[in-house]
């Protein structure tokens, strides 16, 4: 089989396909009292063999992992990322995340927040690589169910 023919034949197996290199587990319900606080853990899993830049990559040109809360009844007081791993790519040391990890958000409910069910929506932006190639930045929509008591 010629190379070109082999490439077409094996295309789905050999070629880097556009797919998420990172997945987010469906978030747990956040229960919170009016005026109270609660911590939500977002479970993130990076595919084996890949890494994503941490929230604080060492190089200014690299694209950090970034969780941004866009809408909902709660205020995000703080977002905590795990401690990154240091990996060497070429001659450079990079701060990356691999495998499974949690991003924790401390939510605060305003005392005027309406009681009942709602949702917080956000976006998780990341940029993934493996040892030989990088994939274009991607964004995953996040939706966390919320119950305000």
């Amino acid at each position: 089989m010629g190379r070109a023919a082999a490439c077409v034949y094996w295309l789905p197996l050999l070629c880097p396909a556009q797919q998420n290199k990172l997945a987010v587990r469906p978030p747990q319900m956040v229960s919170i009292k009016q005026g109270g606080t609660a911590v939500e853990s977002l479970r993130v899993e990076v595919l084996d063999g890949f890494h994503v830049n941490s929230d604080k990559p060492k190089d200014e040109f690299l694209i950090p992992l970034r969780l941004t809360w866009m809408g909902g009844p709660l205020e995000a007081k703080s977002i905590s990322y795990p401690k990154p791993e240091e990996v060497k790519v070429g001659g450079d040391l990079l701060n990356v995340f691999t495998g499974a990890f949690d991003i924790k958000t401390e939510f605060h409910s305003p005392s005027t927040a309406p009681v009942g069910s709602a949702a917080m929506t956000g976006k998780l932006r990341y940029q993934a690589c493996n040892s030989s190639m990088c994939f274009r930045p991607a964004t995953i929509d996040i939706k966390v169910p919320v119950t305000i008591e």
Binding site: F61, L62, V89, R136
Partner: peptide, 10 residues
Amino acid sequence: WATWCGPCQI
């Protein structure tokens, strides 16, 4: 290439 691509920098 892209500025954010590590292997590109190599």
